[in-house]
Amino acid sequence: MQCVNCSFENLPGAPSCARCGSMLQLSEMCVEPPRASKGRVATRVRQVWYPLRDGLGRVRVSRRKLTLLLPEPVSRSALVWSIIPGLGQLKTSRRGLGWCLLCTWLILLLLTLVSLGTGWHFFFRNLVVMTHAVAIVSLFAASLSYYGLIVRALFGLLVFVGLSLLLYRPVGWACSRAYVLLPVPRIGANDVVSPGDVLLYQGPWARPESFRRGDLVTYRIDHQQTSGYYIRAGFGLDRVVAVAGDHVQLAEGRLYVNGACPLEGEGPLAALPPLDELELDVGPGDCLILPTCLDVTLFAGHAGNQRVHQQLIRSVSVVAEDDILGFVVFRLRPLKRFGSVR
């Protein structure tokens, strides 16, 4: 029996060629090809399965190299170092690109911090994330060259969103728990804080347990409305005048705490409210903060009413320590007054 493929003379009755392995029993062979069902299910399933199989086969995390669904391996240490943009490139001996990315990122980060409280902050923050994303995507450049523009763009977008959600948002949230940004839009005239200032106050994680006299604090004000005045819910900003156990007296336009005038830097930020007389003891867990800078709306006809003023001041100035958000530590804007507030 001669093989049709290689013409080798095989023994009669042999099922396959001894030389090339081709089938010899031609008469038994079916020549009708198999046909697909109408939906081509087998073909469609395999068209999805084979790329998946190839992709899964590439996920190999070894000690030195991390291969992540990509044809070219990416250095794992470079990826880890890329928590700071540019360091991954410096690790993989691309010094020029690494330094360029690192410097750009640092400059943009600085601009982001400086622009806190302005409209530019959002823009610079996104540029920072974008620079970081570029640094990471450039590590995958060799692998991404195998793919089309859409895949590369999607990968970049994915990295950007991933960094934004998994790195920058958590870091931003943690920072806001430690120090909180406070833009001051409207405030009464005083020497320390002006309208338009952007301040930083201590957030819940950095807030002290108790406060001292003279601490410049921001505190929560609840909505209040009586027959004479109306206070909108919001935040107040002033110095702590007296703490728990202190006796406060306001007589003839002068303030006395425990019988003595407060020292300089311990009194209210602005001039005292126009009250004839006020006397009270600060209870435990409370502080006294005279709302000298508070913008309060008085109803018509009550502007000169002493009783209404007294009622207003009593209701606003005694603040529970829990309602104090934190003390103000830093001024970010205006830039010429950049620095510590205390």
Binding site: V4, N5, M23, R40, T43
Partner: peptide, 22 residues
């Protein structure tokens, strides 16, 4: 051409049984 690629693959394997390395 008829988009029956899986069947084409099966059939090419069948042909290759007869003509190895064609």
């Amino acid at each position: 051409q008829l988009d029956e690629c899986h069947e084409a693959r099966v059939w090419s394997d069948k042909g290759l049984e007869l003509f190895r390395n064609n």
